[in-house]
Deep mutational scan, measured.
Amino acid sequence: MSGNGNAAATAEENSPKMRVIRVGTRKSQLARIQTDSVVATLKASYPGLQFEIIAMSTTGDKILDTALSKIGEKSLFTKELEHALEKNEVDLVVHSLKDLPTVLPPGFTIGAICKRENPHDAVVFHPKFVGKTLETLPEKSVVGTSSLRRAAQLQRKFPHLEFRSIRGNLNTRLRKLDEQQEFSAIILATAGLQRMGWHNRVGQILHPEECMYAVGQGALGVEVRAKDQDILDLVGVLHDPETLLRCIAERAFLRHLEGGCSVPVAVHTAMKDGQLYLTGGVWSLDGSDSIQETMQATIHVPAQHEDGPEDDPQLVGITARNIPRGPQLAAQNLGISLANLLLSKGAKNILDVARQLNDAH
């Protein structure tokens, strides 16, 4: 009898209710805020589980004197976190989706994509230029951005401005803007500013005609071990179906173009009346040469937790077992079709030249 009692006690200790789920994140304040929001949602869904947040620095956090596009290494903000995932030191990792490459290392998958916040870019102005827009900034004003995508589009749109690289986390960039006289304004992701509670610093939100956004911008991705079915089931509740389908289309477009950090590629997606609209573009580094096109596809946005595919093969690095396969494939095909259209119009040449120029500098 006593033996059975011990077995029952052991089973209770090993039951999922007692389990601590370890969540990996970057150390920056924004990353911690984003991770806290994901953990809060998981806690609400699984009140019996405990969650421990483990923060670590990544290569991208450490190399702050070089433009991201020049470092010449993929997975700048993800490699150390993936290493911890691989060694079973954490069970899942919360990322900004735009930091996750469209091809993940073997053994990993994006197990959830959370509801997207505003994906557009924002302009934050130096205190002396508050009330201005990019259009009304004085001639030769210097605007800071760490992104080739932003610089290429904005140089084309605002030729009277000069664009220079600015690195560091959000706090560091804002301090550089406010305390030094080098920059009249800087460009940042609206979602990051909003998550930090800095709505009052948003001086201008850039519309798609001015600057399309990065693939996955404004959404959070939760990376897990691809074979860890328990954790895949656990994080599945975080999937937002519309965000998922938009981001599958965007990531398929980028992957098929073979774009990345070192080339200016941008997108804009919208879901309306059962249609998914995808606009994508590529630019030369100075913005003088560009190709942009829009395509659409009829896609039914499923309700969360309709029964999805059981075999769960990944699409552009994403596993969404609780979302039907048909809409996911339709979104992926839309991204591939748009990429093929741009490639047929000469996108590869623009991107190759951009890559060579970026590598040469």
Rank of each mutant, 00 (worst) to 15 (best):
R19C: 04
V20I: 10
V20L: 08
V20P: 10
V20T: 12
I21L: 15
R22S: 12
V23A: 15
G24N: 01
T25G: 05
T25K: 05
R26A: 04
R26S: 01
R26G: 01
R26F: 01
K27P: 11
K27C: 12
K27W: 13
S28Y: 01
S28I: 01
S28F: 01
R32S: 08
R32K: 08
R32T: 07
R32Y: 14
I33H: 07
I33M: 08
Q34D: 03
Q34I: 06
T35M: 10
D36R: 07
S37A: 14
S37G: 08
V38S: 06
V38G: 01
V39R: 08
V39H: 06
V39A: 13
A40V: 12
A40D: 11
T41F: 08
T41C: 10
L42Q: 01
K43F: 06
K43V: 15
K43T: 12
A44C: 05
A44G: 11
S45M: 06
Y46T: 10
P47H: 10
L49I: 07
L49G: 12
L49Y: 15
L49A: 14
Q50H: 12
Q50T: 10
E52W: 04
E52I: 12
E52F: 11
I54Y: 11
A55T: 08
S57R: 11
T58A: 09
G60Y: 01
G60H: 03
G60L: 01
D61T: 01
K62C: 06
I63P: 12
I63L: 13
L64W: 15
D65V: 09
D65L: 04
D65G: 09
D65T: 09
T66W: 08
T66A: 14
A67W: 01
L68C: 09
L68P: 08
S69D: 09
S69E: 12
K70H: 09
K70E: 09
E73I: 07
K74L: 06
K74A: 10
K74I: 07
K74S: 06
S75Q: 09
L76N: 12
F77I: 04
F77M: 01
T78H: 05
L81G: 07
L81I: 12
E82W: 06
H83Q: 13
K87I: 13
K87Y: 15
N88H: 10
D91H: 04
L92I: 12
L92S: 04
V93Y: 03
V93H: 13
V93I: 14
V94P: 05
H95K: 01
H95E: 03
H95Q: 11
S96K: 01
L97T: 15
L97M: 08
L97C: 07
D99S: 01
D99C: 01
T102D: 05
P105N: 06
P105Q: 11
P106S: 13
F108S: 05
T109A: 06
I110P: 01
I110R: 01
I110N: 04
A112G: 07
C114R: 09
K115A: 07
K115F: 11
R116W: 04
R116N: 04
R116C: 07
E117A: 07
E117V: 14
N118T: 14
P119H: 10
D121Y: 03
A122R: 01
V124P: 03
V124M: 13
H126C: 13
P127S: 11
P127Q: 14
V130Y: 14
G131S: 11
G131L: 08
K132S: 12
K132C: 11
T133I: 09
E135V: 14
E135M: 14
E135Q: 14
E135H: 04
E135L: 12
L137H: 05
E139G: 10
S141R: 10
V142P: 06
V142M: 10
V142R: 12
V143L: 11
G144A: 11
T145H: 04
S146A: 09
S147N: 01
L148H: 04
R149D: 04
R149A: 01
R150V: 06
A151V: 11
A152R: 11
A152G: 09
L154F: 07
L154Y: 06
Q155R: 11
R156E: 11
K157S: 11
K157P: 08
F158R: 09
F158N: 12
P159V: 14
L161S: 06
L161Q: 12
L161A: 05
E162L: 12
F163R: 09
F163Q: 10
S165C: 12
S165M: 06
I166A: 08
R167W: 07
R167Y: 09
R167F: 05
R167D: 05
G168W: 01
N169W: 05
L170T: 07
N171E: 13
T172L: 11
R173M: 01
L174N: 04
R175D: 07
K176D: 09
K176M: 12
E179T: 11
E179A: 14
Q180P: 09
Q180C: 15
Q181V: 06
F183I: 14
A185D: 06
I186P: 01
I186G: 05
L188Q: 06
A189M: 03
Q194R: 13
M196P: 01
M196V: 11
G197I: 01
W198E: 12
H199W: 10
R201T: 06
R201A: 01
G203V: 14
Q204L: 14
Q204Y: 08
L206G: 06
H207W: 14
P208R: 12
E210I: 15
C211G: 07
Y213Q: 06
Y213I: 01
Y213E: 14
A214N: 06
G218L: 04
G218D: 01
L220H: 03
L220N: 03
G221A: 07
V222R: 01
V222C: 10
V222P: 01
E223N: 11
A226D: 11
Q229L: 09
D233K: 10
V235A: 03
V235Y: 04
V237H: 01
L238F: 01
H239K: 05
E242P: 14
L244F: 01
L244I: 01
L244N: 05
L245E: 03
R246Y: 06
C247T: 06
I248M: 05
I248E: 01
I248V: 07
A249F: 01
A249D: 04
A249S: 14
A249Y: 01
A252R: 03
F253V: 05
L254K: 01
L254I: 01
L254Q: 12
R255A: 05
E258F: 06
E258N: 01
G259D: 11
G259H: 01
C261F: 05
V263L: 12
V267I: 05
V267E: 05
V267G: 06
T269Q: 01
T269P: 01
T269S: 04
M271Q: 09
M271R: 07
D273R: 14
D273I: 06
G274V: 12
Q275D: 03
L276G: 05
L276A: 04
Y277P: 01
L278Y: 01
L278P: 07
L278C: 12
T279Q: 08
T279K: 04
G280I: 01
V282H: 05
W283S: 13
S284I: 15
S284G: 11
D286S: 08
D286W: 09
G287W: 01
D289I: 15
I291W: 08
Q292L: 13
M295I: 12
Q296S: 08
Q296H: 14
T298V: 13
I299M: 15
I299W: 04
H300Q: 11
V301P: 01
V301K: 01
V301N: 01
P302N: 01
P302L: 12
P302C: 11
A303L: 15
Q304K: 14
Q304R: 13
E306T: 03
D307T: 06
D307N: 14
G308D: 13
E310N: 01
D311E: 14
D312A: 12
Q314D: 01
L315G: 05
V316A: 11
I318A: 01
T319M: 01
T319I: 09
T319F: 11
T319K: 05
T319N: 05
A320I: 01
R321F: 14
N322S: 07
P324F: 01
P324M: 03
P324S: 08
R325T: 08
R325Y: 07
R325C: 06
R325K: 08
G326W: 10
Q328P: 10
Q328G: 09
Q328A: 06
A330L: 15
A330P: 06
A330S: 08
A331S: 04
Q332C: 01
L334C: 13
L334R: 01
G335E: 03
I336L: 05
A339D: 06
N340R: 08
L341H: 06
L341M: 11
L342Q: 08
L342V: 15
L343I: 01
L343A: 08
S344T: 13
S344M: 05
S344E: 13
S344L: 01
A347D: 01
A347V: 03
A347M: 06
K348W: 13
K348P: 03
N349C: 06
N349R: 14
I350G: 01
L351H: 11
L351T: 13
A354Y: 01
R355V: 13
R355Q: 13
R355W: 15
Q356F: 03
L357W: 01
N358R: 15
D359V: 03
D359G: 13
D359F: 07
